[in-house]
């Protein structure tokens, strides 16, 4: 299971993903990013502190979200990935474009 909690903050939106970000649920993250960016806030922090596992579909959803946010003139940043998520980001070289930040607050610095 995975649940996404959307929290609009001044200047950005936090999307907290709790559970496994996998093939069955990756589309939910895509939709949540689309909704956040569509609401006029193109800066998004994906809080991964509650994400126990990510697969390649989940990674694809993060990349898709990054593109959507950047196309709208904003950015997508990730916060507090767990060990499996950090390892997978590194092994796929995605940490080059999705730099893990230790917390939501630090990810959103400057926004």
């Amino acid at each position: 299971m995975m649940e996404i909690h959307t929290e609009p903050v001044t200047g950005y939106t936090v999307l907290a993903c709790a559970g496994r970000l996998t093939m069955q649920y990756a589309s939910r993250l895509r939709e949540a990013v689309d909704a956040a960016v569509g609401s006029g806030t193109p800066n998004v922090v994906v809080d991964l502190s509650g994400t126990s596992f990510v697969d390649s579909s989940g990674l694809g959803a993060l990349v898709a979200g990054l593109r959507v946010a950047r196309t709208a003139g904003g950015d997508l940043r990730i916060a507090a990935p767990t060990e499996q998520v950090s390892s997978v980001l590194s092994l796929t070289n995605l940490d080059r474009v999705l730099t893990p930040h230790p917390s939501v607050e630090e990810a959103a610095r400057g926004w």
Partner: peptide
Amino acid sequence: EMPDVLAEDGRGLPLAHAV
């Protein structure tokens, strides 16, 4: 092979190999 960082798919098998 691992795809480009901005690709949205194609990582499954390369990731399995990597781990």
